[in-house]
Nucleic acid binder design. Sequence first.
DNA 1: ACTTATCTAAACCTAAAGATTGAGAAATCA
DNA 2: TGATTTCTCAATCTTTAGGTTTAGATAAGT
Lengths: 234, 234
Amino acid sequence: MRDFNKKLRVLLIDDNANHLRGIKELITLETNYSVVGATRSANLGINLIKKYHPDVVLMDINMPEKDGLQAIQAINKMELQTKVVVLSGYDDADLVYRAMKLGARGYVLKTMASVKLIDAIEDVSEGKIYLPAALSTRFFEYFQSSAREEASKAEGENLLNTLTIRESEVLELLTQGVNYKSIAGTLIISETTVKTHVNNIFQKLQVNDRTNAVLYALSHGFKPSNKSAAMTAA
Amino acid sequence: MRDFNKKLRVLLIDDNANHLRGIKELITLETNYSVVGATRSANLGINLIKKYHPDVVLMDINMPEKDGLQAIQAINKMELQTKVVVLSGYDDADLVYRAMKLGARGYVLKTMASVKLIDAIEDVSEGKIYLPAALSTRFFEYFQSSAREEASKAEGENLLNTLTIRESEVLELLTQGVNYKSIAGTLIISETTVKTHVNNIFQKLQVNDRTNAVLYALSHGFKPSNKSAAMTAA
DNA sequence: ACTTATCTAAACCTAAAGATTGAGAAATCA
DNA sequence: TGATTTCTCAATCTTTAGGTTTAGATAAGT
């Protein structure tokens, strides 16, 4: 994964000039690292990344400003091999979660020992994810609580379970925005039969129109149960 | 978090009787652990958990069978303090991802040294998440690739961006399943004006009816831009 | 001053959707 | 066998949705 003959090329982004200097000194003390750039602007940093294709980007993130997160996303959209390590003063669960979600490969707190920063750069450059235990735990708890919310939707007394097989097939086509005529054609039944099914669906889902039926289905984890082709219909 | 005066109460679930014995011996060698139960059945294990409220559950997961994952979910639904550590022969990214999503607090491979298992139990009982570096990296790459898929929906040439403010307000109400009359009432404009807006929306989103407009909005990350009340409308 | 975009509204029309009632055929269940 | 469910279809009706044209008022940009 890593070629030890070449120096790791690191780029620094931190809006605080003092931090920037400090980190730069810290990094340059390491014999096998070279700082290819250091800037206080996220936008400028992105341009430098385009030019120099660094191995690792150390990116400072300040809570109130949203630029940092957007920058992470922008960097990963470039599809380079550049790995992003977040350097933040905040161990906020949501911030850690979003940073990782947007493609960060490491997250280091400013309060941590500077050697951790070197560890992070080292790990990340080797393809690993660097997330200290405390942050990792926070991340996963956030992750799991988000998942629980989603799961709870698909549960409860789900009116979708009262639908018959045929009604589910009709509802699936409804969720694809298909009109009566096309549904009838797809299921090879008459249009009036489709209307009957749809009306039964409405009663069971306690709605009055197809839009609300579709919204109910989508928000309650409706999954097409059958093996139908599910082709795009006009 | 952890009271060192009391022994950690551990429950084992593994459908392989030999593994079960082996792990039981391993655990009981540790002076501050006590095995409160050991079973080969996931369902039986869940009942034992209800009875004994163990601190940690060691759960074996075999790839083909889905029982293990469901058991994890079932255990976490109980809202106990019981932490689940997965013991698996598979380092499949999807399996790791789903196990953690469903509430597992640790994941250990059978190929790992047995001391890792003790580490996992120890960490997890203290409220930490235990995920070895290699698995952690896999998890995050899976997590990030999933997130990228979602994000790509909200990007691209998004026809939603062509909507005016007023049209977005109307579309928001459409995505709540509101009809013309109610939209007119909410926005305090005439019904014909609403129709005009809706028709313009249809043209811009290249659809022919409200259901497809709503489906387009939901699948392209439509976010209500304004500060409207967004109350539930009949 | 001129143009363009946006929001508003009406009138008119067609098409589609939704509500209701009734009913036959087949399958399943008690 | 009798009862129930499900799937099928028709006829009729009301309501809503959707398409089109036209146009006034306002605001913003050139």
